[in-house]
Design a protein around this nucleic acid. Structure first.
Length: 574
DNA sequence: GCCGTTTTCGGCCCGACTGTTTTCAGTCG
């Protein structure tokens, strides 16, 4: 069992216990346990085998027992018991914004157990009659349900990807399987994923499908037919596995990766050219090389999956006008990182070492600022102390530089969390909206304006404040924001954390058109999450960014030069 | 449930804001 799956199980246990009114600290222990498991880099199964699990801080006897049961039997008796006790619809209700545990309990008591029942009651204006509820919450509930509907059964890419990876790994280890590749919207890096789609080849197609049906995750078969099987994973995501012949593999991979429009454009081109694809692909080392050969047969350069969208990319490819997309190796540093000094998990030194081992040239430590109490934000004195610690780290390493930065809150009234004379001493200042996310537009605009017009604010973090699939952006006019960023020379962030992916690929595309410099940052709170940079890069690729568009693709010297320039002159890329 | 002891129970990030309420509970970050 994959770490992520264990974490999901623990967090579901926490939610269910919370609903039935279990001790809140016990609930927190499980919730904390889920976070810990997620942040462990090595497979938990190995730790269990070596009896090292209980040595981890935060994992005691109780959690150890549940995790071991998950690893050994792929189930937990506690979870099964709770699932029997609590109607599954309540978890969906708990997911709604503005609905917490206490409201869920109130609804449960009133006999409401599904989103549909809740919606019906809200529409009949009966929710406002329940204790602690009122007309405004009723409206907020209906809006929340609307948001879930828009999501229409899709899953955020982060959840889908880790579920997919563990399954790909499982398939690759089966002796009867020859080739396994991810395809569909996950391969295109769509931020919301309809289903996990895996294409593979096997000696005996039907035997493989029969075997897969016995997999413990395949409890709920959705659909099956010649050469494919669809089932719902334990955590709700549909999994689509297709088995194809070696000869058909590449054409099927191309067909299932791109959108319908992309495939259609390729077919049109083939008819036009009357070209034929013969399948010499066994002579290639990797499936990617073989896929290049497929595009070559259409006299096209290989088109990156992220771009296989409207079909227009085929025309661009024909004319040799595809962007030279940014690659993971182009990233030279991460400019938004937290440590134990505020709400991070890893120490400053651990984060530095982790960035070095990723091959970066530089990084920025950007812990939270003083007003964000919950994140143990740093006072001026603490920040100065941290700056000294960073300076001494820098003295000891010749070929790696740590920027002394801060993620500074933009307060609810538009003031910034430190005075100008203080932040001008920092190497890098990121400004963020973390509080009062539901303010009216003019207030949000005022806050962003104050931050962007400040000469010392270098980057605006997670510029729309959305949480992918679970929270809408705050009320901001994107055109206005981009104009202001361009005018003031403020860098906008792609927050690579898969919970956020903010800016979205669509918005990044618009930002590029206005020549706004982008930074791709992880906002990592522990070492393991530095790997999230991949999500940000994929987002940038989807938007057609090249390395010149991204601040942290420049060398240390160039970045220092950019940061030393007055802000208003930064958007000219020289 | 976890941790850390002043070893076997007591404490466990907290403040702002909102929408309920007539003084506060729930939600959020």
């Amino acid at each position: 069992m994959h770490n992520q799956e264990i974490a999901w199980a623990l967090s579901e246990i926490a939610d269910l216990m919370d609903i039935i009114g279990e001790n809140s600290f016990k609930v927190r222990a499980f919730r904390q346990g889920a976070l810990i498991v997620e942040s462990i880099e090595s497979p938990v199964t190995k730790l269990v085998a070596r009896n090292q699990l209980s040595k981890i801080r935060g994992i005691g006897k109780g959690l150890c027992a549940e995790i071991e049961s998950l690893v050994h039997y792929e189930k937990s008796q506690l979870l099964e018991k709770l699932r029997n006790e609590v109607p599954p619809g309540l978890l969906e209700i708990l997911d709604l914004p503005n609905v917490g545990i206490s409201s869920v309990r109130t609804f449960f008591k009133a006999g409401i157990t599904t989103i549909e029942e809740l919606e019906e009651m809200a529409k009949a204006r009966k929710i406002r009659q329940l204790p602690g509820q009122g007309p405004k919450t009723e409206l907020a509930i209906l809006r929340g349900i609307e948001m879930i509907r828009r999501r229409s059964g899709k899953f955020p890419i982060g959840i889908a990807k880790s579920a997919a990876e563990s399954f790909v790994h499982f398939l690759k280890n089966l002796p009867e399987v020859n080739r396994v590749e991810l395809t569909g919207d996950l391969r295109r890096h769509e931020e919301m994923v309809q289903e996990i789609y895996i294409l593979c080849t096997a000696e005996e197609e039907s035997a493989l499908l029969e075997l897969l049906k016995k997999h413990p995750s395949a409890t709920h078969i959705l659909d099956e037919g010649a050469g494919y099987l669809r089932f719902r994973l334990t955590f709700g995501i549909p999994m689509h596995i297709e088995v194809t012949s070696e000869a058909e593999f590449i054409p099927r991979w191309v067909e299932t990766t791109g959108t319908e429009a992309h495939w259609q454009a390729l077919q049109d081109l083939r008819r036009e050219q009357a070209s034929h694809y013969n399948n010499p692909w066994q002579s290639y080392q990797t499936t990617e090389e073989a896929e290049e050969n497929y595009y070559e047969s259409l006299q096209l350069p290989w088109i990156a999956p992220e771009l296989r969208d409207s079909g227009q990319e085929v025309e661009k490819a024909k004319q040799g006008k595809l962007p030279k997309l940014i690659k993971e190796q182009d990233i030279r540093g991460d400019l938004h990182i937290h440590t134990k000094w505020s709400d991070g998990v890893s120490s400053l030194e651990e984060m530095v070492m982790a960035c070095q081992s990723r091959g970066y040239e530089y990084m920025a430590i950007t812990d939270h600022s003083q007003s964000l109490h919950i994140a143990r934000g740093l006072s001026e004195e603490q920040l100065l102390k941290q700056k000294k610690a960073i300076e001494s780290l820098n003295k000891n390493s010749a070929d790696f530089t740590v920027f002394s930065g801060v993620e500074m809150d933009i307060l609810t009234d538009g003031r910034l969390d430190y005075p100008d004379e203080f932040i001008q001493e920092m190497d890098l200042v990121i400004a963020s909206v973390h509080t009062s996310l539901r303010q009216e537009r003019h207030k949000i605009h005022n806050r962003i304006e104050q931050a962007l017009k400040n000469p010392h604010v270098d980057i605006l973090a997670h510029p729309t404040g959305r949480l992918l699939g679970s929270r809408d952006p705050y009320d901001v006019d994107i055109d206005w924001l981009f104009d202001l960023a361009a005018k003031t020379g403020t860098v906008l962030e792609i927050n690579a954390s898969p919970e956020r992916l903010d800016l979205s690929a669509n918005l990044v595309k618009q930002a590029k058109e206005r020549d706004i410099l982008i930074a791709i940052n992880t906002d990592a709170h522990d070492r393991a999450r530095l790997g999230d940079i991949q999500y940000g890069i994929n987002n940038a690729r989807k938007a057609g960014l090249e390395k010149e568009d991204v601040l942290n693709c420049y060398s240390l010297k160039e970045v220092q030069k950019i940061l030393n320039k007055p802000k208003s002159k930064r958007n000219s890329r020289s």
